[in-house]
Amino acid sequence: MNTTHVPGTRSNRQVFLFALSTCGWCRRTREFLEANGVEYTYIYVDLLKGDERKEALDEMRKWTPRQAFPTIIVGEEVLVGLDEDKLRGALGL
């Protein structure tokens, strides 16, 4: 998958973000992660086409049946939508 890695000082949990480039909440999620120094990887699904998009959505479906953005995977935990309190909890912040 055509993912982008963002380095950070906090890398004790693997964080992956399924996002849309047009979505304000996805952008705010990235800002939250970066403000907290969280190392993470993201993918903008709306910028993918054809098989690439299908591959990303298939991968997303392994984690959650709901196709909603942002979907944030923290370790084994799946968070759908930006809820800063829940995200803080999942990240151990």
């Binding site: 047009t22 304000g24 952008r27």
Partner: peptide, 24 residues
């Protein structure tokens, strides 16, 4: 709100209509 409006314009340019910026 400004970001969402920006997303609407991006979708307008991409698809020809203002699809919800937070949906695929």
């Amino acid at each position: 709100t400004r970001r969402l409006v920006e997303g609407l314009l991006a979708n307008q340019a991409r698809y020809g209509y203002q699809a919800c910026p937070c949906r695929l």
